[in-house]
Design a protein around this nucleic acid. Sequence first.
DNA 1: TTAAAGACGATTTAACCAGTAGACAAAATT
DNA 2: AATTTTGTCTACTGGTTAAATCGTCTTTAA
Lengths: 150, 150
Amino acid sequence: MITQKMKYALKALLVLGDEAGKAEPVALTIEEIARRSGTPKRFLEHILLEVRNAGVIASTRGRSGGYSLIKKPVEVSISELLRLIDGPIAPLPCLSRRAYQRCEDCTDEASCRIRKVFAEVFWSYLVIIESLTLADMLRSDKVAEQVLGG
Amino acid sequence: MITQKMKYALKALLVLGDEAGKAEPVALTIEEIARRSGTPKRFLEHILLEVRNAGVIASTRGRSGGYSLIKKPVEVSISELLRLIDGPIAPLPCLSRRAYQRCEDCTDEASCRIRKVFAEVFWSYLVIIESLTLADMLRSDKVAEQVLGG
DNA sequence: TTAAAGACGATTTAACCAGTAGACAAAATT
DNA sequence: AATTTTGTCTACTGGTTAAATCGTCTTTAA
């Protein structure tokens, strides 16, 4: 499960992405982003700060300040955002590339059967999620409807 | 990330699976399973209880009691175990089949762009992990080595 | 009947999630 | 220059979960 915080981050980026796609985009205040995305304003502050530090959005302070998207949507990786907000994606610390950690109880990583089996699943999963970008979300209404529920 | 508890559950099942594959398998005590799997004994109690209630293993009480695998390894689904120990697999509650929950802030599920994009990733992922069983883990040493680390 | 096992509920400690509050800094308007 | 509007940053809080541990009870074989 992704966290609520991640959902808020995505919603905020959708708002900023929609704005950036307009004819004459303007910077949006936290207040406005919070309103449009349905996010608690004070909480959104923290989220936007992290996203800004990652170089995805930019902020200007003072009157007529606000936030705007500075990366092209196609360059905003969902998996990177996940790592930023929710932490490592890998099912096991010993399978994470960016946040590798040896399992403290593991005697021999190469022969670990748990690692081995999750590695296979994980690589397949990674290929899929690494290819996802904000652009995919922004134009997702154009995607053909599929049966989802149940 | 899967929890430590899930790792312990898998390790315990590997121990019981290995035992079940022997010529003359015997029931193993918690003590023995804890020793072989490197799991805290008192914690393992709770884990084995849950796994037993799911019908994967059986227990006998009293002297010469213990645990043994009662399902065939090929019938022990890793994804079911994940659901049992760690909860829903889906990235969003509104994408879970078994633990479906509407996102409380969601106005229209069908048009939710977050849901839509995660749905695609999730279904692909599900296909892979749903096919995994304990049997795959038990014979995973036969799997060709692949480069994992980094 | 007693020792060896599992069953089960209560408690604990630390971390994390989701959110709030207050003080501060910058920029534009007046 | 003062004021207002914005973002920045640190700290805190209440609730939940993870990872155990503890004590007690029940079952069963020797």
